[in-house]
C-alpha cells in the first residue's frame, strides 16, 4: 500500500497538474488562514502559503526541481502580469504627471540605496560574493531580479527568499514609518511600497487604494529598469 502511494506521487508529478494544484491549494489555504487570523500585517498570505506549500512538498517527498518544472505553467504568467501593471499605470497617469519631478529625483537615489544598504551590511558581516550578488536585487520584481542575479553570479533561490523577506518587511516598515513620520499621502506610500517591496509591496498598495497601487506599479517598474541597468555595471567595478 505504502509502496503504491509512493509511486502515486511519482506518477502524478509527471504532469504539471500536481504542482499547479498544490500551488493553488496553498494559495487559497494561505488566504483562508490569513483571514482567520484577523489579517495580521506581519504575516502576509504569501508567507503562510509558501510555508504550507513547502511543508506539503516535503511531506510528499516530491522532488523540488520537479515541482518547479510543473509550476512553470504558473510562473510563465508573471510576464503578462508585469505587462498588466501598465494599465493601472495609464489610468493613474494624471496623478503621476503631477508628481513626476519628485519621482524622478527620488527613484535613482532610493533604488540605488535599496541595493547598497543591504550589500554593504552583508559585506561588513562577512557574506560571500555569491550571497552579495543574491542580495543586491532584493527590491526588484521577481522576473527582472532573476535575470540580474544570474548575470551577477548569485543564487536564484536565495535571491527569491531575500525578495520575499524584503517584500514583507518593506510593507511593515512603510506602514510603521507612515505613522511615525507621518506620511499620509497615499501616492507617496504607494511609491515607497513599489520601490522597496516590489510585487508584495504592490499587492499591499492595491489594498490601500487604486492610486497607491498605480504608484507602486510605477515605483516597481522604474526600480526594476533602473537596477537592471545599473547593478551589472556597479558589480563589474
Amino acid at each position: 500500500m505504502t509502496e503504491r502511494l509512493g509511486s502515486l506521487v511519482e506518477v502524478l508529478s509527471a504532469s504539471p497538474t500536481l504542482a499547479i494544484g498544490l500551488t493553488l491549494g496553498a494559495f487559497f489555504a494561505g488566504n483562508w488562514v490569513f483571514a482567520r487570523m484577523g489579517r495580521p500585517l506581519w504575516l502576509p498570505p504569501v508567507v503562510l502559503a509558501a510555508v504550507m506549500l513547502s511543508a506539503t512538498i516535503a511531506i510528499l517527498s516530491l522532488d523540488y526541481a520537479r515541482y518547479q518544472d510543473g509550476a512553470r505553467w504558473l510562473t510563465v504568467l508573471l510576464g503578462p502580469a508585469t505587462v498588466a501593471l501598465g494599465i493601472p499605470l495609464y489610468q493613474q497617469m494624471h496623478h503621476i504627471r503631477a508628481l513626476w519631478r519628485p519621482i524622478l529625483c527620488t527613484l535613482p537615489v532610493a533604488a540605488t540605496l535599496a541595493a547598497v544598504y543591504a550589500v554593504v551590511i552583508a559585506w561588513a558581516l562577512g557574506a560571500t560574493p555569491e550571497v552579495l550578488a543574491s542580495l543586491a536585487p532584493k527590491s526588484v520584481t521577481a522576473p527582472i531580479a532573476i535575470g540580474i542575479t544570474e548575470q551577477l553570479g548569485g543564487s536564484v533561490p536565495l535571491m527569491m527568499g531575500g525578495l520575499l523577506i524584503t517584500g514583507v518587511v518593506a510593507t511593515l516598515f512603510v506602514d510603521l514609518l507612515a505613522r511615525l513620520l507621518p506620511v499620509k499621502d497615499e501616492r507617496i506610500l504607494g511609491f515607497a511600497l513599489g520601490v522597496n517591496g516590489h510585487a508584495i509591496g504592490t499587492v499591499r498598495a492595491f489594498e490601500i487604494s487604486h492610486t497607491a497601487g498605480a504608484f507602486a506599479s510605477l515605483g516597481m517598474g522604474l526600480t526594476g529598469v533602473f537596477t537592471a541597468l545599473i547593478l551589472p555595471l556597479v558589480f563589474r567595478l
Binding site: L99, C105, L113, I121, A127, K138, I165, F173, V183, A192
Partner: peptide
C-alpha cells in the same frame, strides 16, 4: 548577515524613500 542586511537595509531604504518623497512633494 543575510537577515541583518535584509531587515536593516530595507528599513533604511524605506525611510530614505519616504523622507525624500515627502520633502520633495
Amino acid at each position: 548577515a543575510v537577515a541583518v542586511a535584509l531587515l536593516v537595509g530595507t528599513f533604511l531604504s524605506v525611510l530614505t524613500t519616504l523622507l525624500l518623497m515627502k520633502c520633495l512633494v
